[in-house]
Amino acid sequence: MRYQSTTGLDHDQIQELVAPIHQVLGPSHRPTGRPAALGLYRSVLLTLVLLRQNLAQTVAADWFGVSQPTVSRVFRRIAPLLGQVTCPHTPPLPEALRGRVVLVDGALIPTHEHASHRKANYNSKHRRPGVTAQVLAALDGTLLAVTGPVEGRTHDSRAYTLTGLNLLLTDNQVVADLGYQGTPAIRPRRKRPGHKTHTPADKIWNTSVSAIRAAVEHAIAHLKDWKILATGYRARLSELPTVIRIVTSLEHYRLAGDTSE
């Protein structure tokens, strides 16, 4: 069976994840009693499907022939291990940024509406609740890093400071969009006072900046192929930073094994 369309990883990549997870877990400590509902390989497969497709756990339970509580237990057990074993594929910062031109953009991660966070996480631009993370990419679109989330109402220029990028990227040339007004980033130019249109020089500048920035948009699009970050995160908000780290590590792992990128 082919799994790349449902998990984002091919069969060999999944097998390469199972081996180190087996080493981390060690030998089974269940000498008696009923066997586990899912073996390790299918547990890893189930967790990847949940991250990639953001299925409701009841639907995933039907797919894998287990109960919803089993799906929940498997996900909570295996997801952190996926992040742990793929972590070496994540480029270390700030070494990975040294000497690079860095593209930065904010990405909204939609969430379900939580009463206690309704106002703080409502993003007026996208007209939906969520949190935002700053995505860093190289000029060729290679994903470099994803910051922790901030409240969905936070403007990108403010998030740039809150997430520490103003300190991390001090020695880098940064390219961003108009939302980063007030930061040192290279960005498109606004219309000049008294002008209804851009000057010819500004049009050329903005076109050039937009062409460069397209790479970070591609990086965000690939990151959001992990639908748990794109179609509405349903679990506890306190666990979302960990999920973002896990997905980021998996995306770096996927890119390391994808020669077509």
Rank of each mutant, 00 (worst) to 15 (best):
A79D: 04
G152W: 10
T7L: 07
T163E: 06
H126E: 15
A201K: 09
R118N: 04
R118D: 00
T207K: 07
Y3V: 03
A36Q: 15
D62I: 08
P241G: 08
T259E: 12
S67M: 11
R52Q: 05
L178K: 06
T132D: 09
S5D: 14
L17D: 10
L237A: 03
G148S: 14
P184C: 03
V101P: 05
R190T: 04
K203V: 05
P94K: 11
K227N: 04
Y180C: 00
H126F: 11
S67V: 08
R192D: 02
A145F: 05
A133T: 15
V216A: 00
A219I: 05
R187S: 00
I14W: 07
P129Y: 08
V59L: 15
V18A: 09
R2M: 04
V44N: 04
K191P: 07
G65L: 09
S210Y: 01
E16K: 13
R192K: 14
C87T: 14
R42C: 03
L168F: 10
A235C: 03
L178I: 05
H22V: 07
A137G: 15
S208Y: 04
Q13V: 01
H252C: 11
L223V: 05
H198E: 06
P94M: 05
R254P: 03
H89G: 07
G8P: 02
G148Q: 15
A60R: 01
Y180G: 02
N206I: 00
L81K: 07
P31M: 12
L38W: 11
K119V: 13
R76P: 01
R128D: 01
A176D: 04
H11A: 10
T231D: 11
V44Q: 03
R98E: 13
L143E: 02
H29C: 07
A115S: 05
R187L: 02
V175W: 01
A230F: 06
T259L: 15
D12C: 11
L25N: 11
H117T: 08
Q53H: 06
T163N: 04
T231Q: 13
I244S: 05
A201L: 07
R73N: 15
Y180A: 00
V49G: 01
G141K: 14
H252S: 08
Q4W: 12
G8L: 08
T111F: 10
C87L: 12
L162Y: 14
N166Y: 10
R128G: 03
A115I: 01
V49Q: 01
R187A: 01
H218N: 09
L223K: 03
R98L: 09
R98M: 10
F64D: 12
I228L: 05
H117M: 09
R42G: 02
T86L: 03
V18K: 07
T248L: 02
I220F: 06
D105T: 04
Q53V: 02
R34H: 14
A176F: 07
P69G: 12
I220V: 11
P92C: 06
G232H: 13
H112W: 09
H252E: 08
L162I: 11
S210I: 00
N206E: 02
R189T: 07
E239T: 14
E95A: 15
T207Y: 06
A145Q: 10
N166A: 10
R98W: 14
V24L: 15
A137I: 12
Q53R: 15
L55D: 00
P92H: 12
S238N: 09
V66N: 08
T259M: 08
T47Q: 02
